[in-house]
Nucleic acid binder design. Structure first.
Length: 290
DNA sequence: CACTTGACCTGTCCGC
DNA sequence: TGCGGACAGGTCAAGT
């Protein structure tokens, strides 16, 4: 579920909430959700305080005062929700989406010494949290191979075109989803940015004229920035660090809008399959390549 | 190398 | 109301 804007929204929230808190205990209910966590590793978390919260691609990194970091990938249905002591229990701000915690999808609970808690929930159990020595964090595959961050200042349109051109003979949608080319784009923002640039998702990268590549670059950055501003996209599962949903989907133009009119031309939006993924297009604005 | 398929899981929705 | 199948925003490995 969570793509760059959702993970970044969580990071912004946690960066305000966690630093300075001291870990008292950690529990987990599913080995795959908290791998590499032998008793020893968990012991190294005790009494450590949170120093900082970072994001790279769709991965969160919580640096501790010890030599370790908590590294978290939310995959499809992961949530990372902080519940402060004052709000814990009755009156939680979002009963409908984050409910009373822990619940049946809570995989890992981190207790802090002030009585507050950080819950890692994950319905489908695809996500994970790992405790890693800081020096090893960059050795995770996704960090070794991951592409450029699309919102960094030095991610110019020239770099965008250079990176995409490494996959000239692939269709543009699968290239946008390829984390080794550009980091953080998933199905929602791939569809939205392609609609913005009027490019059919099956178009081969090498067949896209330069002007459209420039349009796609702008469209992608605009869509990601707008979504961060709106707190991300909530379909079913996504909530931010305080358990609140994001509102971007009400600004989306094509994603999950099949059957509705295209906001630009009024043609009915269709849902097709490209690169094995559900894909939303306006068949008038985004002409299928020959 | 490009692309597809299947796997990892649970929950929901849709049609019969 | 029950049941089977398709599907869900992400990655990874293996096969063609």
């Amino acid at each position: 579920m969570p793509e760059l804007p959702e993970v970044e929204t969580i990071r912004i929230g946690l960066a305000k909430l966690l630093p300075g808190l001291v870990i008292q205990d950690v529990q987990h209910d599913w080995q795959k959700s908290f791998p590499n966590a032998p008793a020893d590793a968990v012991r190294f978390m005790m009494k450590a305080s949170v120093k900082a919260v970072h994001r790279r691609a769709k991965v969160l990194i919580i640096d501790l005062s010890s030599k370790y970091s908590l590294v978290i990938h939310l995959k499809m249905t992961g949530q990372l929700v902080y519940v402060g002591k004052k709000r814990f229990g009755a009156g939680h701000p979002n009963k409908s989406l984050a409910g009373d915690l822990p619940d049946k999808s809570t995989r890992v609970t981190v207790d802090f010494t002030d009585g507050s808690k950080l819950f890692f929930n994950d319905q489908r159990k695809f996500g994970w949290m790992r405790l890693m020595p800081k020096i090893d964090v960059t050795e995770i595959d996704i960090f070794r191979k991951v592409g450029t961050e699309p919102l960094e200042d030095d991610f110019t349109v020239e770099r965008f075109i250079e990176r995409l051109s490494r996959r000239e003979r692939s269709n543009i949608k699968s290239v946008l989803l390829d984390q080794t080319i550009i980091a953080g784009v998933g199905n929602i923002y791939a569809d939205e940015s392609l609609w913005g640039a009027k490019i059919h998702p099956s178009t081969l990268v090498g067949d896209i004229p330069k002007a459209k590549m420039v349009a796609l670059y702008s469209s992608l950055r605009d869509v990601l920035n707008l979504s961060i501003e709106k707190g991300g996209s909530t379909d079913r599962n996504y909530v931010d660090s305080e358990g609140k949903p994001g509102s971007y989907l009400s600004f989306a133009n094509v994603f999950r809008k099949n059957g509705q009119p295209c906001p630009r031309c009024g043609t009915t939006i269709e849902k097709i399959k490209v690169a094995g993924r559900g894909t939303h297009i306006c068949p008038h604005c985004q002409k299928e390549p020959k």
